[in-house]
Design a protein around this nucleic acid. Structure first.
Lengths: 133, 133
DNA sequence: ATTGATGCAAAGGCTTTGCACCACA
DNA sequence: TGTGGTGCAAAGCCTTTGCATCAAT
């Protein structure tokens, strides 16, 4: 997908990338669609899915696969950890240095070839905590 | 779900639990269904889903939410890390001690209340590695 | 007997895809 | 002007659910 690609920068693709870069909320495809259609009413959900897929295949954005049913997307392509609220599903970044030594440690114990690792925290976000009390 | 539950140990539920405890392959609901129907041809996929859900809600088994579209299940309810093959999707355990200090470290950096953490490794399993070469 | 569980099939949620038309390069 | 992209709608995949019937307690 990356090599030999003849990607065109359409207005839709450009807007999708632009809007994703504005937020840190790790939106789902449908979250994006709801925002995008305000600025481009005729954009289709299929186009949003297709572009998010292409942009993440190309490495321009990142697809994140935290628990829950929907995939989420992130314009920050650096390796970083996430935390998900078990109540509302919201996802936020955890700004800590990735523990690369986890990979070396695990590599001694598995016969898989380790390529990456992901850490996901599960917790309760401030908003949901407030509602609970 | 746990408190005040009046669960019946039906033949289906018993078999589902029994078969899940036999394997370490982290099967999907459909994987389970394919195995179960050999021993109980009339069992329905809905029953498999319902029971895996109930058993994990009750804490008797664990639902695991590694990347990919399908949920997987594990009779081992201890906290442990998983590795997923990026080619075939297979999931295996990584037998290392969980790094509980990751939670304390992250807690300093987020205003979420951290409850758990998960580590997922992504790699290539021995079988797929063999096919590549 | 009571009522939770099952089998079946239909419906639901999220995502992908076929197709004719459109618009970047 | 060639071909990748779009909008639309249909289809696909996984999972949940309504309902009549069954069976565990």
């Amino acid at each position: 997908m990356i090599a030999g690609s003849k990607l065109r920068m359409t207005k839709q693709r450009q807007l999708i990338l632009e809007e994703l870069r504005k937020v840190t909320s790790h939106p789902t495809a449908d979250d994006m669609y709801q925002v995008l259609r305000k600025k481009m009413p005729k954009i289709s959900l299929g186009t949003v899915y297709r572009n998010l897929e292409i942009l993440s295949d190309t490495g321009i954005i990142q697809k994140i696969d935290v628990g829950g049913t929907q995939k989420r997307f992130d314009a920050d392509i650096s390796t970083h950890y996430h935390i998900r609220c078990t109540i509302c599903g919201r996802v936020a970044d955890v700004h800590m240095e990735p523990h690369m030594e986890l990979e070396a440690e695990a590599q001694k114990l598995t016969d898989y070839e380790i390529l990456h690792h992901r850490v996901e925290y599960i917790g309760i976000c401030p908003e949901c905590r407030k509602k609970q009390s």
